[in-house]
Design a protein around this nucleic acid. Structure first.
Lengths: 343, 343
DNA sequence: CGAGTTCGTCGATACGCATCGACGACGCGC
DNA sequence: GCGCGTCGTCGATGCGTATCGACGAACTCG
């Protein structure tokens, strides 16, 4: 691996270095015989262009910056599918992915753009009030947000439509004849952090509960751990005063423990109580029992984000993208919602 | 963000461009007043060096390539802690992380090295026979493997000491007076893929079971999903013919479902049967019930891998690193192993 | 007090590629 | 048969940084 240069390729192919470059970029016509000689020479040397030189001369890096937040306590809301989708989408466009953690805050963003480390940035886990958003908006490279802050500052956002998801859950419970709804919130830390989607779901469920005329309670905050979940289960049972109680659990990490806690109390979801979770279909299917859920596939969201990103990099390459792109959720009925009473 | 250059900094500071460079690298002495003027100018312009130019001239990128395998079916063995640790360790050394997925195979490696995209590579999820290992060994940049292939080809490897972990589990069961051991294997796909650690654990448990004179059965393959786990539970109960049965579960994904299945059958781990899992402590603690486990913290492994990597990048910077670096596991007793009978 | 050092700075160059302007070889129309 | 546009290629230049050799100044030591 002696690290060949385009000059080496040129020499072997018997052409000038610039011709080699034009073969690669296609920015000028090259005759078929010449092109072939050049390609052969490249193959023979297993030539790879030096990315640094390319970035310097061509002012583009073929790298996408990805800013992720690793949960402090390991609470990483299914981060992996996002990352995976972004990585493979980037590769499909001949780009690579540079990973930056969110705990660098705005400094990471400035580094990415200032050092010309990447051509564009995807930033995940956007908070309602996110100090990084204005910084990102001022960068010299396009930025796509996964998550919708209070003020996107002109940046493109992609996210699951949590408001719609909340409405769908409420509608499903209302349509199947429930007469009360309880929403299980999330940890105080998450709520405080302005963790976007939990807040939005709670708000939307509240509103839509009113629209459908269903009394609605929110249990919050709900910490992690057996005891906390057990307490929630008890609260649910206390509320279940003979009526048809529907529970909405916006956070997938809470669902399985809650199902276990209910089972321990001999309460069967789908018979004695109803439960709808917000989670990926995969989690909902593999649970025991499989629960009815409203899903947003991380893959859909990040795929759309990447489409937007590459459109920003080359606006001629497709149709205009919406500034705020909300992915529609989907309700899948499984076993945890009581059927409508037949009388 | 007009993208300033070191020349701009030099002009403002009233020095030459090379002086600015020497201030940054510290490779030549600079007087204190000059240094200060230069640093002030940098701060004033919020100057950031162009990474491409730096890579070109300085032949180093300050980037670490990370090759990960996203599980085909989402079976990503706690990948995130590895990635997180690697990312933060890289940042601590003023490096960034370029993420490459394993499905590019060796091509990804060649690209990383050939295009000078990074200074060193960490490759995870190494298989027993891994076609990428010889390729990696021939690269122009140092490579550290997380996982130990049959032939490391001279590369440095870091991994949990699975053999030791298996022995510890067997010892614990033997020491607490069990008279039979069952090992729950993993999916056929994983085994076939040569998924390193499962294979090694099975082998080591077998061997050490013999040493300790305990009859030992391996249940394999074990697929995912409720039914498969249920079948395993039934098999375990069938074997439990009055004796003291100890179960070793090498894969953390299998443990919780198995605990659930046992509970459903009114078998209480720690009273009627013993179970030791291989998993992170976090998983073991948060399970219901918390199970006795032998842990290897992903963070320990990836931290050591990064230490080795930076040592390879600068061998003068610390003590020599072992070619094969196995992290010692730790047994933590919780609730799922029956205590030694007191008679 | 002169020869040899070390210190601090500068100018020039190379790194590997993309791109621009130039230019010869053609093909076309009249 | 001559001007003109197009095609295909080349040489030269610039991108922003690191580094090397040089050089004056200050300092050391005999």
């Amino acid at each position: 691996m002696a690290a060949f240069t385009s000059k080496d390729v040129a020499r072997i192919a018997g052409v000038s270095q610039s011709t080699v470059s034009y073969v690669m970029t296609g920015k000028r016509p090259i005759s078929e015989p010449t092109r072939r000689r050049v390609l052969d020479a490249m193959a023979q040397l297993t030539y790879e262009p030096h990315s640094g030189a390319r970035a310097l001369a061509g002012r583009r890096t073929q790298v996408v910056g990805l800013v992720v937040r690793f949960g402090v306590g390991g609470e990483t809301f299914g981060l992996l599918p996002f990352i995976e989708t972004i990585a493979s989408s980037a590769r499909a466009h001949d780009h690579d992915v540079l990973l930056v953690t969110a705990d660098e805050g705005s400094a990471g963003l400035r580094r990415l753009a200032g050092r010309a480390l990447c051509d564009a940035i995807i930033m995940m886990d956007i908070e309602e009030q996110d100090e990084r958003v204005p910084v990102a908006a001022a960068l010299s490279v396009p930025v796509v947000l996964i998550g919708v802050p209070a003020d996107p500052a002109g940046l493109h956002c992609v996210d699951l439509d949590f408001e719609a998801a909340a409405r769908m859950a409420v509608d499903e419970l209302a349509d199947t004849g429930h007469d009360e709804i309880v929403v299980v919130g999330y940890t105080a830390a998450a709520m405080e952090r302005g963790l976007n989607f939990v807040v939005r779901v709670l708000r939307s469920v509240r509103e839509h509960g009113q629209v459908r005329g269903l009394p609605l309670t929110v249990i919050e905050p709900v910490e992690r751990g057996r005891e906390a979940i057990a307490k929630v289960a008890d609260q649910l049972l206390a509320r279940r005063t003979g009526g048809r109680l529907g529970v909405v659990v916006p956070h997938s990490d809470t669902i399985v423990p809650l199902l276990n806690a209910l089972r321990k109390r001999d309460v069967v979801p789908g018979r004695d109580i109803s439960l709808i979770g917000l989670s990926t279909d995969r989690e909902a299917e593999q649970s025991d029992p499989p629960y009815t859920n409203v899903s947003g596939e991380p893959r859909d969201v990040s795929r759309r984000a990447m489409e937007t990103l590459f459109w920003l990099l080359d606006p001629t390459s497709g149709v205009e993208r919406p500034a705020i792109d909300l992915v529609a959720p989907r309700l899948t009925r499984r076993t945890t919602v009581m059927p409508t009473p037949s009388n």
